[in-house]
């Protein structure tokens, strides 16, 4: 664990979480959620949980983002809030 690294990622995490929820474009929201997952993966690698980080990199940032974009493509891209 590296405290300075930790603090920076945690702040970025809160920022990306808020951005993902405030954007009105759902495609952009899904992409920002992918960034959030990658930051989370980085944080877990830093906490020496390498297996969890690997899983999050493949599942959270990879497949989750893709299926969310697939749904946005099949439904609608606009959100009112």
């Amino acid at each position: 664990m590296i405290p300075s690294f930790d603090i920076v990622i945690l702040i970025f995490l809160v920022v990306t979480a808020v951005i993902a929820l405030t954007l009105k474009d759902l495609l952009a929201s899904a992409m920002v959620l992918g960034i959030y997952s990658f930051l989370m993966c980085l944080l877990w690698a830093e906490m020496s949980a390498v297996d969890v980080a690997f899983t999050e990199a493949t599942v959270g940032a990879g497949v989750s983002t893709v299926i969310m974009i697939a749904t946005v493509y099949q439904t609608t891209r606009k959100s009112r809030d």
Partner: peptide, 17 residues
């Protein structure tokens, strides 16, 4: 090394995606 059934499986599925 880090890895195993879940990670390998997801990556293999991702190649089909």
């Amino acid at each position: 090394s880090p890895g195993g059934g879940f990670q390998g499986g997801v990556m293999f599925g991702a190649s089909f995606i």
